[in-house]
Nucleic acid binder design. Structure first.
Lengths: 213, 213
DNA sequence: CCTCACACGTGATGC
DNA sequence: TGCATCACGTGTGAG
């Protein structure tokens, strides 16, 4: 070994510290003179304080370490590094999650609003002028799909049914909504005796029935 | 001051370190002898390495600090402490958010599944034995709410309507769904000339009409 | 042998 | 004045 006197000094300091650690000399023997009376070694005033500080710090570091899931290294620096990356990760996760949640809430609110609008429209239907709508489409050899929206007046549905029956048609797979304001009929139409149906012909017929009532 | 010779030693060491810092003696003059040839001072082998390590560690600590929003103290220990509490906070937030999100997705999926079930039920309705259901409730002086579910057979709806009309009733605010398998009618029933209605009487009447067809 | 990371004790400093 | 915190240089052990 080629260390100088400083090495000895440091060695002495080291031995001193170990001695204080192992011997656990913690008696306060005249604070003014920070010497061990037996060995004449110097004792710093904030030695134990500093020890506690270091211990506390390493404890906190271990607590932080226990929270971080991914471990790259047991180094102090990498512990902090992993913690920072983990915090960033969590931040991003929180952001994306809240964004997703808000988006979902927004869509739900949107649909709710739409429904509410529809309800309000339905409730105020009698104040409206109902736009008459008549659609007929061929969906089979002798099968038609029809959709009828007309203003609902007293006995109008009955008359419509009677008119259709008069011409020998029957509605199947029907959806019907009748409110005070409007009447919606949607379903499939079939000739009762299997005769062929023509779209424009049926449409004209339905128009006649509607305008008649 | 009442320090002993050790104080002088440490003081020397301190002065040495400052000298090396300010003078920046970084020349490698025969690694075997770690002395500054001019002043005969000892230089530890891993001095700069340790310096870099400390610098890196404090830098990481500052980076970690910059990520944590709430600041209680600038201490090293409290920095780590705040970081741990922040990580816990973020974890809880992520958990609650994901839980909320999953709950919302679950409800949405539930309704979707319900709808799909309904659709499948409707599509397979013709394979089922439709449970006849007849409900009548008084909701006004001369106004009844009725719900009818019967097996849908050819011309049955027409006959039902005819039967009801025969007894002088009219359906308002009606919802009607007619498939190949079942027929559902729900709506309000009113006597055409404003006569009073009795629940059990109307129910019996409707039962007669249904059983007749 | 070397490199790296760590704990240690100490002086300095702000409150 | 104390008290708490920090940076520093160093010894040491593991890889």
């Amino acid at each position: 070994m080629e260390y100088g006197i400083e090495d000895l000094i440091c060695g002495d300091l080291k031995e001193f510290s170990l001695a204080t650690e192992n011997g656990s000399r913690k008696g306060k023997m005249g604070r003014k003179r920070n010497y061990d009376d037996d060995t004449r070694e110097y004792k710093s005033k904030n030695l134990e304080t500093e020890r506690r500080r270091r211990e506390k710090l390493s404890t906190r570091l271990l607590m932080l370490r226990s929270l971080v899931p991914i471990i790259t290294n047991m180094n102090k620096a990498t512990i902090i590094d992993d913690a920072t990356t983990y915090i960033k990760e969590l931040k991003g996760e929180v952001q994306s999650l809240s964004q997703e949640l808000h988006q979902m809430e927004a869509t739900i609110d949107e649909t709710t609003v739409t429904k509410i609008d529809e309800v309000e429209v339905a409730e105020d239907m009698n104040k409206w002028v109902v736009q008459t709508e008549l659609r007929v489409a061929l969906i089979g050899a002798n099968k038609l799909w029809v959709k009828i929206i007309i203003e609902n007046k007293r006995g109008r549905f009955k008359k419509l049914m009677e008119g259709m029956n008069l011409f020998g048609f029957e509605l199947t797979d029907t959806n019907l909504i009748a409110t005070k304001g409007a009447l919606l009929i949607e379903g499939c139409m079939q000739g009762m005796d299997g005769e062929r149906l023509e779209v424009h012909q049926i449409k004209k017929l339905l128009q006649d029935i509607i305008s008649d009532i």
